[in-house]
Design a protein around this nucleic acid. Structure first.
Length: 156
DNA sequence: GCCAACGTTGGC
DNA sequence: GCCAACGTTGGC
């Protein structure tokens, strides 16, 4: 199985790179995804060891905040069964869970690479997160884009 | 706070 | 199965 690469958006008010850094084993379950495309990536296409660009969204300076790896096989998102959770899904059952997730483990915090900076890089043309109207919270990243970001952008 | 883009829902 | 209405995302 060849390694793949992903960009995963998180609102820092909910789960920031520092939350990931201070989590047990520097690992967080990627709870709260309620979009089928994003779920399908976690359920069907992500594998342990895949590279993850940890991205801060819906904040003052959106951008890449760290590097991480996929750290589990898919399993049911526990928040879907919790009536007190904002992610509760009354139509989902433990026998047939609708929402699956993976764990994400911090590799390292990086400088914040702003979305505006990424947009200026010709090397990143075609990157899905830069596409007009993109809202998907998990998007694939090509090896070429991953290489450019990790080798040239992430260091100051 | 605005609004473009896109996903979901539900009437028919 | 179509599609209008509505809700959400997320940059700006």
């Amino acid at each position: 199985m060849t390694q793949r690469y992903w960009l995963m958006k998180s609102e820092p008010e909910e789960a920031s790179i520092d939350d990931l850094a201070s989590a047990k084993h520097q690992t967080l379950a990627w709870t709260g995804v309620r979009n089928y495309q994003a779920r399908n990536f976690m359920r069907d296409e992500m594998h342990e060891g895949d590279g993850v660009l940890f991205y801060h969204s819906s904040c003052a300076v959106p951008g890449i905040a760290g590097l991480a790896t996929v750290a589990s096989t898919p399993y049911p998102d526990p928040t879907q069964f919790d009536p007190k959770s904002p992610y509760f899904d009354p139509k989902s059952t433990p026998e047939s869970p609708r929402w699956l997730l993976v764990d994400v483990k911090l590799d390292r915090k990086t400088r914040l690479v702003p979305l505006t900076e990424m947009r200026q890089m010709a090397e990143l043309d075609g990157m899905q997160v830069l596409a007009r109207g993109n809202r998907l919270s998990i998007t694939p990243v090509s090896p070429k884009h991953w290489k450019f970001i990790t080798q040239h952008l992430v260091e100051a």
